[in-house]
């Protein structure tokens, strides 16, 4: 069977698989667009502390 002008199922399979996995990412993203922000404040605070430490490290080690 030829799909989109490609005879080998291992190759057109890859073509289709790429589209499907992208759709998976899109659907996952849409379903979870607003999820994961329980305790967003706490997460952002953690993140701020981390970046502060990273900046200190950069100054100390890279001198920038």
């Amino acid at each position: 069977m030829e799909v989109l002008g490609i005879p080998d199922p291992w190759v057109w399979g890859a073509y289709i698989a790429c589209i499907l996995v992208t759709l998976l990412c899109v659907i996952y993203g849409i379903l979870n667009w607003n999820k994961g922000d329980e305790d967003e404040e706490g997460q952002i605070k953690e993140e701020l502390e981390w970046e502060q430490k990273e900046l200190e490290m950069e100054e100390k080690e890279l001198g920038f």
Binding site: C25, G29, N32, W33, G36, D37, Q43, I44, E47, W50
Partner: peptide
């Protein structure tokens, strides 16, 4: 360096 899990969820899309 990602701000929150929400950011990661959106990043997937």
């Amino acid at each position: 360096t990602v701000k929150s899990n929400k950011e990661l969820n959106r990043g997937v899309l």
